[in-house]
């Protein structure tokens, strides 16, 4: 049985471990804190599996490779909600919706009635929206915990001390791998979690705004995750300004959020290469899986599959990068 080490227990590392187990490998995952938690940037993710929406700014490979994500997570036993994504603008920014519609495939335009049918609690607040039915979302923390438990019961060892290299190593350490991948940089994202019993959303909602874009991802127990900030910085400070922007945008989406409980504020830096596309690369017996940027849960399944395939039969898949 082939032995393999995985460095990093974030979303990339866990997905690679799952693919290795699928190939019958004996896998050990090394991470200074070998369980999902606030030390890794996957913890702070939105969990939107939204390849079409991402194509507003991301390149074609992200859309293409992101298609398999929802099915992959479901096959791991993770609860995936396939209700699509809703895209909205406030009154005076309507033209942002036209632009988004021009650039993003797979959407339907909704009028007020169509919107009310999908999201009754937004009835009367917007007269037009886009619905992208082919998208999905999951709860990132639940997904990470589930995957880790599943891997453990499949015999994967999770270890804090990085042992001696033995066989192939899959380096999935994110920004910590800057010692080996100097092109990596951090792109800061900030998020907040609110709890409200007064509003129910069935799917992620993206509010397009020239200055304060927002997404709201509904989670279980009346929780809502707010996100969207993107700052060229690798500091992890939670800034007042970002939180103000997120909360104001949520309030503009629906005033009921003004009465919500502020449960959590978080910030982390996401690993990205200069083209904001992920990369697979090889240095000796180490295969790097990195640069997932804002597409961790969307692209980790495809990257993990490609990384393991490349290791087994030395193919050069999409996102392969020669140094």
């Amino acid at each position: 049985m082939m032995r393999a080490r995985v460095l990093g227990a974030g979303v990339a590392g866990l997905c690679v471990a799952a693919e290795l187990v699928g190939q019958g490998c004996n896998v050990t995952v090394f991470d200074p804190v070998p369980r999902p938690g606030p030390h890794g940037c996957s913890w702070w993710a939105g969990g939107m599996l939204a390849p079409f929406c991402e194509s507003e700014t991301a390149e074609a490979p992200v859309v293409r490779q992101g298609q398999e994500a929802a099915g992959w997570w479901e096959r791991q036993g993770v609860a995936v909600t396939r209700q699509g994504t809703l895209v909205l603008t406030l009154g005076r920014d309507r033209r942002e919706l036209d632009r988004f519609g021009r650039r993003v495939a797979g959407h339907q335009t909704l009028d007020a009635e169509g919107l009310a049918a999908l999201e009754p609690d937004l009835d009367g607040r917007f007269d037009r929206a886009l619905h992208i039915p082919g998208e999905a979302h999951l709860d990132p923390r639940a997904a990470l915990a589930h995957l880790r438990t599943r891997l453990e019961s499949a015999g994967v060892a999770f270890v804090a001390e990085q042992g001696r290299p033995e066989g192939l190593t899959f380096d999935c350490r994110g920004l910590a791998a800057r010692d080996r991948l100097p092109d990596l940089r951090g792109v800061k994202g900030e998020m907040a979690v609110l709890r409200s019993a007064d509003i129910r959303l069935n799917r992620p909602v993206r509010l397009l705004h020239p200055r304060f874009p927002l997404y709201v991802v509904p989670r279980a127990d009346g929780l809502f995750m707010l996100g969207a900030t993107q700052i060229e910085s690798d500091d992890r400070k939670r800034s007042v300004r970002s939180v103000l922007e997120l909360l104001s945008a949520a309030y503009a989406l629906h005033p009921v959020f003004g009465e919500a409980e502020l449960v959590e504020i978080g910030a982390d830096a996401r690993p990205a290469f200069p083209d904001n596309l992920p990369r697979l690369s090889r240095q000796g017996d180490t295969i790097h899986v990195n640069g997932l940027f804002r597409h961790g849960f969307l692209l980790a399944p495809a990257l993990a599959r490609m990384a393991v395939e490349a290791a087994c039969d030395r193919t050069r898949p999409e996102f392969w990068h020669d140094d």
């Binding site: 990596l184 951090g186 700052i231 060229e232 910085s233 690798d234 500091d235 300004r241 830096a269 200069p274």
Partner: peptide, 15 residues
């Protein structure tokens, strides 16, 4: 926004 005490934006500025 990118400055701050840690100069977190250094990687982007280098680009």
């Amino acid at each position: 926004r990118e400055a701050g005490a840690e100069r977190g934006g250094a990687a982007f500025w280098n680009l």
